[in-house]
């Protein structure tokens, strides 16, 4: 059972299968993942894998704690959504 990428921006740090996802999660979260996967109907199991693969990718991102800490102490550079939309329009990108 695997989860397929729709927008592969980076190499997979976490394998897209249950074994790889479980290995990337810490103890309590690994148990939560197993509980959800074991309780899922076949048609729902792929959704569980997809969501937990994302969770595992975020959990194992070495930049994660730095970004959160910087957001809290006010040192993280940010952009307003309105400015982002204007930049996309200036770049000729759709905003709808």
């Amino acid at each position: 059972m695997t989860a397929q990428p729709i927008h592969p921006h980076e190499p997979d740090r976490v394998p897209r299968n249950a074994e790889g996802i479980a290995a990337a999660l810490d103890g309590p979260r690994r148990m939560e993942f197993y509980r959800e996967l074991l309780a899922a109907a076949p048609e729902d199991a792929e959704g569980v894998l997809r969501r937990w693969w994302c969770e595992a990718m975020l959990d194992t991102d070495p930049a994660g704690d730095r970004l959160t800490a910087a957001a809290l102490d006010g040192t993280l550079p940010t952009t307003a959504v309105a400015d982002l939309v204007r930049r996309r329009q200036e770049a000729g990108l759709p905003v709808d």
Binding site: H9, P77, A80, V81, L84, R87, A91
Partner: peptide, 24 residues
Amino acid sequence: LPCLLSEEVTELLMDKTLPGDVFG
């Protein structure tokens, strides 16, 4: 509460290959 974007998210949203449904 105002929702601001990190540089990482801004970069993703400026990606020309980002599908429209994901941007939305």
